[in-house]
Amino acid sequence: MQKSLIHSGLCLLSCGAIALAGCATAKLKSPDPAIRRNALIEAAKKGDNTNLLHKALEDENDLVRRTAVRLLVDKGLDAEEELIGLLDDRDPLIRRSVLNTLCLLKGKELSLNILETALHDEDPSVRLQAMSALVAVKPIDARRTQIIQAHIPKEKNQAIISLGSSALWPFHRDVVLLKDRPDWDHEVRVVSEFPLPKEGWKFKTDPKGEGHFPKFKWYAANLNDQDWKPIEIEKIWETDDFKYDGIAWYRRTIKAPAKPEKFNAAELHFDSVDECAWVWLNGIYVGEHNLGTVGWTIPFNLDVTKEIKWGEDNQITIRVLDTSGAGGIYKPVTLQILE
């Protein structure tokens, strides 16, 4: 008896659901997009709405379609097939949202073909999402590297270029300053300082982020930088009329002091660079300051004990990234001799 009541109840509920679905289907035919959208939302609260969503994907109103996609996304992997089918939807917002969702749902399992295709999307927000997904999986394998490398030269959007380039950045140096050395428990003292000259620097912008590519090697000690523009440090590059946001390079040769009789380390001290910096001394990568946009006020040091040529000319190259506003090596740079 009890079982039969439950069964009857389920039937009633089921009939109710069917009735509701029927009602929702009717509402989907309303000329008012708001009613159609609400019908989707209400149906989603009640239960299975897949058919309704499929219908709604054909709606003429973008917001109704997007609502349908959102409700599909809420179904997660159960809707994977439908979502993949929407990757070439006419609406870039839907393409982006679907790609986003698939990336989140599948992680590194998401087909690279999907990402590669998305990198060719006409809408930059879709391409940005695709690039984000490509670089998110660490370490970046050969296939991903290949896709990214192939795409960067074709890309016009700075954010996408920057993301891809950063991911493929080939230089690495573990910067361990004297004060941070685990074997060093003495007080670190700056015994002498040699400010780098303000004047005499050479400067070149690098909007494509290619300067470090093997075919350019703008960090090479023997690079001919005669055609680079003159610039001073200790001021923003906009002061010298470079109205520019992006990557730019500074180069200069400096004469190092004679080797001190007693010292424990030599470090380059940057009072601040707006906003990220990558540094080479005599063609050797000595480290970076890459904290994103927050880094522009933060001083940093790089160890050059092994790279510096005492009493001789030393070539220093600094690659700077400024994403917005003022940029450049706007504060002094000093060679510090530490004891």
Binding site: R37, N38, I41, A44, K45, L63, R66, T67, V69, R70, V73, P92, L93, R96, S97, N100, T101, C103, L104, P124, S125, L128, Q129
Partner: peptide, 25 residues
């Protein structure tokens, strides 16, 4: 809020876990 029918207008930087109704680049 979305489940109640609320509309989200965002830009392309919106957190990936949300699906907006309108994106303004």
């Amino acid at each position: 809020f979305q489940a109640r029918g609320g509309i989200i207008v965002s830009d392309e930087r919106l957190c990936p876990a949300l699906v907006p109704d309108v994106i303004i680049p």
